[in-house]
Design a binder for these strands. Structure first.
Lengths: 132, 132
DNA sequence: GATTGACTGAGAGCGTGCTCTAACTTCTAA
DNA sequence: TTAGAAGTTAGAGCACGCTCTCAGTCAATC
């Protein structure tokens, strides 16, 4: 795979900082990236796609530890272990669904409070200061 | 308001630890709780309701800083400032909606990957090891 | 050949939100 | 009256996920 992107370019593309990109590589989330003759990193399009997927996992709250485990499965058994990878993602999928549900439940309570304040404001408009 | 619950009981009710309850009080999220003659905290039902609402704010990702601001509005102007409180909550409501949407978008990509793995697994079953 | 600017690795530092410790008090039950 | 369980404060410590610093390398430009 042609590896031609500098770390700066990848940072721009992915929204991660160059620090974070090096950090991710250091801790095994990204496999050793190709290097130019001067030792500088050169990322391939496949690297970018991988980083984008990693970012989705992070944004859905997967801890680095688990991402490392997933990365390890992909790297260590590149043409197999589909079952294990799928299971890991399915477990994560479940936690994401739970997160969404919890957010929605809590949102109802917040909406309720907003509504309550609106009503109190209306009363203040009509009658002056009101308690609670 | 009758204040009769010990910190242990409140921890049980709310799911927070006693450490966290004291921490929340220390940093101004909970107004000074009533004390028994021996100096021990005695929480009222209103305290519990407040803590439950705080917990909803936390679980939806509101930072402590902002919760402090909200708590300050409630405490400092107990019978007014509804507009400001409502605005604060509405701004938060917006970020929660965005969170949910982002989770859902990322979930699609994860589902997609799970599906992909399922298909690869099926191929492995049929033809033996397959690449990608 | 000197300067500039992007890169490198290793490791220190930081912000957030708890979580735990230590030393002390107070109440209850044996 | 003594043991132990639960409470108190102030402050230290911790896990996580970055984020920044530093000293050095390298290539291009003036």
């Amino acid at each position: 795979m042609a590896a031609e992107l500098t770390i700066q370019q990848v940072a721009q593309e992915t929204g991660l900082s160059v620090h974070t990109l090096r950090y991710y590589e250091r801790c095994g989330l990204i496999a050793a990236v190709e290097r130019a003759t001067n030792g500088h990193r050169r990322y391939s399009v496949a690297d970018i796609r991988w980083i984008e997927f990693l970012t989705r996992l992070r944004l859905t709250g997967m801890p680095i530890r688990q991402m490392q485990q997933y990365a390890m499965l992909v790297r260590q058994y590149p043409e197999t272990a589909y079952d294990e990878r799928r299971q890991l993602l399915e477990a994560h999928r479940q936690t994401v669904l739970e997160q969404i549900q919890q957010l929605q439940e809590n949102l109802v309570a917040i909406d309720w409070k907003i509504q309550h304040y609106s009503e109190l404001e209306a009363k203040v408009q009509t009658y002056g200061t009101v308690k609670s």
